[in-house]
Amino acid sequence: MNFNELTSMQLDFLTELTNIGGGNAATALSKIINRRIRMEVPKVSLVSFQELFSDHMKMEEEVCAVSIRVHGDAPGNFLFVISRDEAAELVEIAAGTVVSNVSREIYVSAMQEIGNILCSSYWNALSRMLDLTFLSSVPAFVQDMFGAIMTTAYIESGQYGDTLLFIENILKTGQNAIKAHLFYIPLPGSLEKIFELLT
């Protein structure tokens, strides 16, 4: 499938889907954090592997990431990525204390939970709209260079094609605006399946 030739209807659907997913995520995050989280309308795009490394994030930047494997009708790999500093901010908001008071264990588990909520909000929207079934793994947390994490997630998905789905979320609480990046790295055929259901 040539993803450059998607119809306007397919692209509209993608936007609508991310609006719903983003809305769900903001509500779920607000509940767990017990503080109102607003979310800007997420930006969604289909990007190629090479574009990603030249445009979106620096390869060597230290980031926190949560990887969740998804099985079922459209298997793939969800990857939630956030810069190290913004991850600390998010954990501080969630824990209600400065990050130096938070143990590593709590830090990792908070990040995993936030990653889980964001990712599941999107695939719930997807599964409801398209009647697809998704089963997810327990998340894995990693803190390292963006490039090393991203290439590994990509290779481990058996995805040697080129296109992945990139959703850029901006979370807001009070004065803070935190950029949370979400990638859906489809197994071969998954993205095609989603778009074929829309034609």
């Binding site: 990887s67 494997r69 793994s137 894995a140 990693v142 090393a148 590994t152 997630a153 290779i155 481990e156």
Partner: peptide
């Protein structure tokens, strides 16, 4: 050749590295 992700469910860990 690192193994970046440590899933609790070890069947998900690949040895590609």
């Amino acid at each position: 050749g690192a193994s970046m992700f440590q899933f609790a469910d070890s069947s998900l860990n690949t040895d590609i590295g």
